[in-house]
Amino acid sequence: MHKAFLSLGSNLGDRENNLIQAVEEIEKNADIKITCASCIYETDPVGYIDQDRFLNMAVAVETSLSPLKLLEELQRVEKLLKRTREIHWGPRTIDIDILIFDDLEISLAQLVIPHPRMFERAFVLIPLMDLCRDEDLPTEKLRDYIDKCTDKNGVVMYKKFELGN
């Protein structure tokens, strides 16, 4: 089994329900098991800022899928939840990114692991901290990255998330 960390975000429609539906859809795949979920955070948009605030969270998964097969499955979930790609970093019903997959480093046109901008984004790192145990990810290093993020003041706890709700 492989261990991966995913980031989920939504700022269109019922943002919280979009996250819940995405988690439920991911859990339906017999080759993926969500082992832990972060709290949900409300966050300012980054990049393209003329849009509504996001809800973001992170999940840890165990999977027998390869990185590309996991990406394919996550894109299926995005499509099911009506994700469109009209504006780069623009509004979306759901966005699911693979942040880390085991200790792999991958650089392909369709997939880069670790996620190339994750260490610059508090809206990714703060939820990820919720999942951290030092054996998975070095918490001290994550805190250092968060301290350097310019968007950290725009990340606010929205609500706790319990798997199976």
Rank of each mutant, 00 (worst) to 15 (best):
V112F: 03
P67D: 11
V46L: 14
E62P: 00
K69E: 15
D97P: 05
H88A: 12
L80Q: 15
D50I: 01
E86W: 11
N17S: 08
E105L: 08
S107A: 12
K28R: 15
W89R: 13
V77N: 07
P114G: 00
L111Y: 01
T35Y: 12
V23R: 12
L131P: 15
N11D: 01
Q75Y: 00
E62C: 01
T84D: 15
I20L: 13
K33F: 14
V23M: 12
R53V: 14
G90M: 00
D44N: 10
R92Y: 03
A30K: 10
A122P: 01
E24L: 12
V124N: 11
L104G: 07
L12F: 01
L71C: 10
R133H: 10
P138V: 12
T63M: 05
K28A: 06
I100V: 15
R76H: 07
A22G: 00
D134T: 04
L108D: 15
L111F: 03
V124T: 10
D102V: 08
V23C: 06
Y41S: 10
Y48E: 03
R15K: 10
I126V: 15
P91K: 10
G47H: 04
D130E: 05
L81F: 07
S107D: 15
R121T: 07
S64M: 08
F101C: 04
A58K: 10
Y41F: 13
I113V: 02
L81R: 11
P45H: 02
L74N: 10
R92V: 02
A22C: 01
E140S: 13
L19F: 05
I94S: 01
T35F: 13
E120A: 10
L19V: 04
I126Q: 05
L71H: 10
D97T: 02
E78S: 06
L137C: 08
E25I: 09
D97S: 03
E25S: 06
I94E: 05
E24Y: 11
E78P: 05
K69M: 08
V46E: 08
P116F: 00
F123R: 03
L111I: 03
L125C: 15
Q75C: 06
I106R: 08
P67T: 10
D50F: 03
I96N: 12
A58M: 13
K33H: 14
L104E: 15
Q75K: 08
L55C: 01
R85F: 05
V124K: 08
L99E: 02
I26R: 07
T93L: 10
T63E: 03
E42Q: 09
M118Q: 05
T139L: 11
F123G: 02
N11S: 00
T139Y: 07
I26Q: 06
L108W: 12
P45I: 02
